[in-house]
Design a protein around this nucleic acid. Structure first.
Lengths: 343, 343
DNA sequence: CTTGGCACTCATTCATCCAGAGTGCCAGTT
DNA sequence: AACTGGCACTCTGGATGAATGAGTGCCAAG
């Protein structure tokens, strides 16, 4: 509050112009070039005064005396928060996204195509988390008796995944018991979220005859195990070659980024910080992970309907086209959500 | 043959020395430095003559007049083939490999640790293929009639994987036919390798009544499909940050390499070229994929027992320490094989 | 066949210089 | 009070050029 009193509209316009120019040219931008390219309606000298203020406040920075100014992380932050809007994709771009993703044949393919597409659209490194199934629900549970003491459990999730397990029962299970168990499993667990299923089913053995409880327990523990495994999280990346498009800060900054990108844990944490609603932009030092201190991360959740099942985003230099990147990330996330909802 | 008549032992020694020095210093090596660092027992002038011959024959190359010499791909090839031995890992290194891999808890972990380890040992980019299941065998095939025209096929592999498919038959299938089919499937396909199953079963429909053949064919094609999917191959990479250790040829050569590493297809092809027995070294332009023309690939198969179930290797600059890299790759492959055999 | 000598070539390095972009400050104008 | 034009100053980046030195090819002699 106190600080911002000093920043009138024109100073903000100057900051916006600086960010835009710098993102375009990748070179420090001076007062003269600024008034030429943007009609600010004032002279370079005035802009210089504004720039001095902006520098005092820490929004821009001078690499060395008598060079132009470069936005700081703080400057980008202000730019993203207050000086710009997410740039929507053009109709043509949206159609391209659609037709590219529509050809996906299964979940793996959706993710693979998404990461590719995002990398191409933004010309940066794309990061896509596999739909976490902890929010997923159970569509159907099937039990098949292979032999009297050997069952097969088939779990079908609402995202269309099928998982099957073999179960060795301590005692033989009759056909009627099996049918009973099958129907109870589905009425109680069907449509429920994975995480809730164990709670909902824990007292199930009690409603069976004593001699069948061992078998029921075996089935349940196998089911819980399968559910737990389905929530395993995974991240895929793409377009890492785009890192080389910044010959500027080389290779000082690229190596740690590559390392970070190989660490599933780091990526999951990174994406995990994204709120369930809305887009997250982490600029430079705002990233907890040190190797990403000179990069920005734009990420957003996606999912079918209004539920977030996973996150996706891009990693690029702090000097990135924020409006465009945010637009691309949002558009892709929405489209992936639609695909998941449809299938 | 004809060419090599010109290369006496000393010339070969000179080539060896050039390769060794160049790998160490990353700088073109001249005649004087050569005689100083290796006791060749002759004067620089003599070495110069030898170098001229070597250059005529295409084994070394001069970046510009009055610079030292650099080995060509052909030179490295000769070096690898005839001038050096695989350098065995030291005892300490072998123990380190063992203790690192021994802590793996499951297959995913083995692969993840292997790729990490290989990247660290060689300080290059490691590539590890998941054990291919094309060598796996069928343990059991189960057929369950859900409705008269709807069957469920369950495939169990010797690695414990279970795959299940629904089949819609064109005609109803009687219980006796089903039992017959089930038993024939298991006697013929049980214990057999995936790849051989289609051949073994292709004439199966003929031994059934005409009206059941449609159903049998449907079952078979579903089974073949499931088998094919189980052999899906996957490759993981690690240590891509090591690419940045060569600020020399930057970023001209790094971008295509990163692109190649993201292409599963390219990597699978690359590793696929490795013979089942023995190590493969592909130097520079020997790599079919253009983006890898300035890199060398050292790869070898690994597996439990004497069977190769997959390949692993590293990608690095042509100017790499071949003996050391080959030693590391071989040692890791052997150890992974042992782990797989034990589990 | 080997060697020492020698003239020659070039990349690299360093210092110097110049041009240009950009700044901060100040005094004058609106 | 805010803006502007002018001015002196700073500093980078590119160009120029000379010195350096590593390295070569060739030749005549051992």
């Amino acid at each position: 509050m106190l600080e911002e009193r000093k920043l009138d509209d024109r100073k903000l316009a100057v900051l916006r112009a600086i960010v835009q120019d710098y993102v375009g040219t990748e070179e420090p931008v001076g007062s003269k070039a600024l008034v030429e390219r943007h009609n600010l309606g004032v002279s370079p000298a005035t802009v210089r005064n504004d720039m001095a203020t902006l520098e005092d406040e820490g929004y821009i920075h001078q690499p060395h005396t008598s060079a132009g100014r470069v936005p700081t992380d703080k400057g980008y932050r202000l730019f993203v928060d207050r000086l710009t809007e997410v740039k929507p994709m053009s109709g043509a771009e949206r159609r391209a996204i659609g037709s590219f993703l529509d050809h996906a044949v299964d979940l793996d393919d959706v993710v693979a195509r998404t990461v590719r597409l995002l990398a191409q659209l933004t010309r940066q490194v794309a990061v896509v988390q596999y739909p976490s199934l902890s929010r997923s629900t159970v569509r159907h549970v099937e039990l098949v008796a292979l032999t009297p003491t050997r069952l097969m459990l088939v779990l079908i999730t609402d995202t269309g995944r099928v998982e099957q397990r073999l179960i060795d029962c301590p005692t033989a299970v009759g056909e009627t018991v099996l049918a009973d168990l099958r129907s109870r499993l589905n009425t109680r667990a069907g449509g429920q979220r994975f995480v809730e299923v164990p709670t909902l089913l824990q007292d199930l053995p009690e409603s069976f005859e004593r001699e069948d409880r061992g078998a029921v327990t075996a089935v349940l523990s196998t089911l819980f195990e399968a559910l737990a495994e389905q929530t395993e999280e995974r991240v895929v990346i793409g377009g890492s070659a785009n890192l080389t498009r910044f010959p500027h800060d080389f290779p000082l900054t690229i190596a740690p980024v590559l390392e970070a990108l190989e660490e599933q844990v780091v990526l999951l944490k990174l994406l995990g910080e994204t709120g369930d609603a809305g887009m997250m932009v982490r600029i430079g030092h705002e990233n907890a992970y040190e190797g990403l201190n000179s990069t920005s991360v734009v990420s957003v959740g996606y999912g079918s309907g209004d539920e977030t099942v996973a996150k996706l985003g891009v990693v690029g230099p702090t000097r990135m086209d924020y409006p465009g990147t945010m637009g691309a990330v949002r558009a892709v996330a929405r489209y992936v959500g639609q695909i998941l909802a449809a299938s």
